[in-house]
Each structure stands twice: as C-alpha cells, then as structure tokens.
Design a protein around this nucleic acid. Structure first.
Lengths: 339, 339
DNA sequence: GATATTTGTTTAAACGATTAAACAAACCTA
DNA sequence: TAGGTTTGTTTAATCGTTTAAACAAATATC
C-alpha cells in the first residue's frame, strides 16, 4: 500500500533538491553533476521503483505522447486491424493511443473530438463519418495535427490523408472478372455518400463500361442500418431473379459476409452459378467452400504511413500530403469461371 | 492558429481571479456567486470555446478518468468486441480507455503495465498472459485497482475477476452432442497452461466420461505459434484417419475457423460426417454451409460487470469478487446428427 | 451604533515535474 | 590576493487547474 514515489521523495531522503534529481534521472548535465551523488540518486530511484508521473510531465512540457484514434467501430475487423497496426507503430515512437468508436455518428464523433482535445492529445488519426468536415477547421484552429485515414474529402484537399486507390481497385476488379469470362457483374455496396465508397462504385461503373461493354450495370445499395433479414432478401432477389448477372462484387467485408452467407444458404454455387469478388479481407473467407478472390488493403503500410505522417506534423512540419496506396488482388477460385 | 483558451485568459479578460472562473465553470458555490458575474464568465468561456485542460485537472485531482486495458490482441474479434463494450461502458462513467496488445507476451505485458502506471490510470482491466501473476502484487503495492477478465488464476483468489463458467460450458457442450446422438467427440484446443483453457478441457473430459462413457477421449493440442499449414495437417489427420470420431469440439474461435476451413476444403460434411461445436462467436460461421452450433459468451454483460466492478474498486471499496457468468449454447445444425 | 453575519471575491499554496538563473565553494591564474 | 573560471547544487517560477482560507464590503441583529 506504499504511496507512489515522486522526485520529492527521492530528494528528501537524500537531502538534495528535486532539481538535481530531475537532472540526474534525465541525464541533463552529465558532466556537471558529481558522479557519486548521481549514483546515489539513481540507486534510490531504482530501489523505490520510481516511475515518473507522465501527467506532471505532460503539463509542464505541453506534450502528452498520446495519439487519439477515432474509428467507426473497434469491433469491426478492418478497423481493429488498423488500430492494432497504429498501436504498434505509435509505440515505436513511445506514443500511446486512446481510442473511441464513432459508429458513423456525427454527435459521437464530435464528443470524442472534444474529449481528445481536453486530454491534450498531441495528434489525432481519424476515419470521420459523413458530414464531419467541420471538424477539420476545428482542429486546424486549435493547431492540433491530424491525419484522415481510409477516407478522403475532395472538398478538403488541404487535409492530410492516407488512403487506398479505391477507384483503381474497383476498376481492376472488373477487369479481372472480365478476363476470367464474366460478362455482367453486379455491384453490392453500402448506401453512403462517403467519397471512398463512391469511388469504388465509379471504378466499377467505368470498368463495366470498358471491359464488359455495359453502360448501365446493376447496382444494389444496402442502407447502413438495415436488418439482416432484409439484406438477405434483397441480395437473394438480385441473385435468384436475374439470370443475366453472372458475377457479384461486394464493396465491403461486412456486406461480403452477408452476401456469401446468402449464397451458402441457398446453395448458389460459386463460381459456377455466380462469380464473386470482395473488398477487404475476412476470416470468414477461409470457410467458404470456394476460396474467395478479394481486394486486399495494405494494412501495415497504411498504419505505418499514417503514423509517420502524423509524427512529422507533430514535429511542426507543415505538410499537405495525400498518400494513396495500392491494393492487391488476391486471387481465389471464386472469380474463375472455368474452375 | 489561436492558442488554446485557459481559465487564466478568461479571468484576465474579465478582470476577475481564476478561482472565480473555476468556481463558476464547476458550479461550485452557485448561491454565493453573483449571478451576473457568473453569466459573464460562462458567456466568455463559450465564446472562446474553452475546453478544460484535463491534464492539469488530473494532476491536481490525482484522477485521470482513464482506464488502461491490456488484452492479448485488439485485432482478435473476441478481444476487440470486449474492448468495444468496455469503451462504451467506461464512457457512461466519463472514463476513457487507453489500450495495448500484449500478444500473450510477458515482456510486452510488463512494459504496458509500466506505461499505464506512469500515465496514472485510475484502474486497469487485463487479460494477462501466462506467467504474469507477479503483476498482481505490483499493482496491489501501488494501490492501483484492477480486474482480470476472461482468465482466472486459482493461486490468486484475492484478485478480482470477471469470467465465464468454462467448465460448465464445455460439460454442457458434450451433453448436448451426446443428446443429439454423438458418441465420440474429439477436442481441438490450444496448447496452453492458462487455467480457463484447462477448464474447458476438464469440462470436456468429464462430459465425455459422463455422457459418452469415454474415459480417455481424444485431445488435439495446437501450439500457439504453429504455422497454418501444420494446423491443417494435424486437424485433417484427426478427421480423416479416425473413423471412430463422430464429432469435434473446438475450444476457441481461432481454432474453430481453422478447423472449419479444413472441413470445407476437404468436403467433410457437417454434421453428416462429423458433428461440430465451437467456442465463441465468429462472423465466419455465417458462411459455413451448415449453421454452426457455438458457445456464446455474454460479451455485453462481461464488459458491464468488469467496468462496474472496477468503478467500485476505484471508489475505494475493498472487494474480492469473482464474477462467473454463464454462457449460452446457440444451436445450429452442425451438432444435429439427424438433420 | 457596535457587532455579527452574509455575500462576493481574491490570495496563495498545491499537484509533480522542468529549467533558467542564481549561488556558493573550490580551483585556477597572473 | 583579487578576479575569473569551473564545479556542483539550489532557488524559484512555471504548466493549468483546484480549493482552503482570508478578506472586504454590504447587510442584518440587538
């Protein structure tokens, strides 16, 4: 039940000032301080298991070594994987991460932002929800460095961001399907105005036009808050009643899982009855009776780039970077017509 | 680029003392302070978008409103779901969460613990790895409230913990399989000395004895750090070469996914060729061609109980609670012999 | 009208660290 | 031996809050 040791305690026990203790433990004037005294201080600090009070340090230095991370939902595999990488990368720079889930909800998001500002985080990484653009000004005014991940706001080109080439990923996905012989791909996506999702749709449309000669391809938009059974109904309708559609492209892993579940449940054979390509990885793919072709995001690289960029901003560099990374197409059998 | 507003700024602009500002903004002596002055202070605070410096508050009050969370790996669905619930529950009490992944690695774990102590977290929630028992004394000495989740250390009955009835869950899983007609269940589990996993094994053994008259049931232990192909080989060997085994019980969701993937890949029909029951939920189950029977942990309740318990400890209550919660068996077709 | 009470506000120390500046003693140096 | 330099350490202010205690002016009490 011992009280936590402070510099004061060490100083008092040795009859020196706290300044000296601070200098020694921070190796401040190594050639000035008496070696013997220094050793005594270090020994006592070790004996009392002194741990500096990071809060006091933060107050004095106006630096908390904390990064705030706001994501849609920590229990979504994509975001938790990103969170994991960011945690590791931050640790390399002695930074810690505090996090919050915003659930694509503007109010929650703004609440979190306020809390992070209150806690004097040195920087923020965020995947901000629809309509959150005003936060950019809020943070800029307060001089708080931040980087947007996953998303991109074309009206805010001044905002630093790390994201993937969503358009190209989609475009190439359709190119791939077409090369494999699929002539009419349908898109199943989230109903959302978020630019990165729009780009996935755009890439799909342009790909369909270019590679499948399809000016007006089928698009199914699933609203965010819809019930699982309703999703099932809509996807089933698309797949059962439309013989002209020979393949499907799911634009998020959540939707892909819903979709694959429907395929499994209604014994729609992949790729025989319908070809499949998905965005993002998922554990679930391992279990599907056909190996799944999917678009893989470079998670580790995203995490690395975003932390490096943020560190640079926190070091006072004025930057305006848009780091766009490439995805990889991991080929399974779900997109092979003749297999 | 405006500097952050402090109480000092507000006080200076209105020609009052910071004490008064503090009293007003914290509603400290509402019937003492001149209503007009109070309003002026509140107005200016709003106008300048004053956000209290939580760091300074923490230093003064010796309270950070921060909970440290150490889990094995934030990118594992079970832990990220728990993290999510804990985040939400903590928020209800105005607490924030800082987190770290320990990867079942003792050194990383101890590092994290030190960082959290440094940062003066008010309490810690941890799923501590094998061999980490000495941390309990470390935390107790420093008077830092903590609660263990998921795991239980029988040699440390003084430690507060929230966990599920692993033994019963396993025991009932075998009872269920036996009721459905399965006569010889094999266990596939992680090679680990962690007590909660041992209990899953014990429950299985006792269940096999009781319900299947099997004194020495088959157990396959998978080492933690093994390659995926090697896992596949071992599971395949078990399932293909042992005709006497009619069902399998996977004790973690990670292992279950590996196992189900093997079943899917080698067209081993479930439940026709082999019955299946799994521990923990997974998105992946949705996609399997048979609906999966699994043991569901009450995640929300675990998160709720652990935060409530920690809050109580942080309020100075001396408690010694072991909160054991029940799991639910979610019945799918994978464990129905005649389906 | 002297004293007590209430009302409204300020003063100053504290939390645990950091750090510029001051200081004292010991040691050159010419 | 006076003045300068070096060595080793302390003093005191500071970061942004909180809060007990002090204080002054206005009001109530007898």
């Amino acid at each position: 039940m011992r009280k936590k040791t402070s510099m004061k305690d060490i100083a008092a026990q040795l009859g020196v000032s706290t300044a000296l203790v601070s200098y020694v433990l921070n190796d401040k004037y190594p050639d000035r301080i008496n070696a013997h005294t220094a050793q005594k201080i270090r020994d006592l600090a070790a004996e009392l298991q002194y741990q500096p009070n990071q809060i006091a340090k933060s107050l004095k230095n106006a630096k908390t070594f904390t990064i705030g991370l706001i994501i849609a939902d920590i229990s979504n595999l994509f975001y938790s994987s990103i969170a994991r990488v960011i945690e590791d990368e931050a640790k390399l720079h002695q930074y810690n991460v505090i996090f919050g889930s915003a659930d694509e909800n503007l109010t929650k998001f703004e609440e979190l932002l306020k809390v992070f500002v209150s806690r004097q985080v040195d920087g923020i990484i965020l995947a901000s929800p629809e309509g959150s653009e005003s936060c950019f000004q809020f943070l800029t005014e307060r001089n708080i460095p931040f980087v947007v991940i996953d998303r991109f706001y074309p009206n805010h080109k001044d905002v630093n961001a790390v994201f993937i080439d969503n358009y190209k990923a989609s475009f190439e996905a359709i190119e791939h399907l077409s090369q494999q012989g699929f002539k009419n791909t349908a898109l199943v996506t989230l109903a959302s105005k978020l630019h990165h999702l729009q780009l996935r749709t755009k890439g799909f449309e342009d790909g369909a036009k270019q590679f499948q000669n399809n000016i007006c391809p089928t698009i199914l938009e699933i609203p965010e808050d819809i019930l699982s059974e309703e999703v099932e109904k809509r996807i089933l309708q698309l797949l059962k009643n439309r013989n002209d559609i020979d393949s499907v492209y799911f634009t998020t892993n959540k939707i892909a899982i819903e979709g694959l579940a429907v395929l499994a449940k209604y014994k729609i054979a992949v790729p025989h009855d319908v070809g499949v390509i998905c965005f993002d990885e998922a554990d679930a793919y391992k279990i599907f009776n056909t190996s799944i072709t999917y678009i893989k995001q470079p998670l580790r690289q995203i995490g690395h780039e975003v932390v490096e960029l943020l560190m640079s901003l926190m070091n006072g560099n004025k930057l305006n970077k848009h780091i766009m990374l490439d995805t990889t197409l991991v080929e399974g059998n779900s997109s092979k017509m003749f297999c």
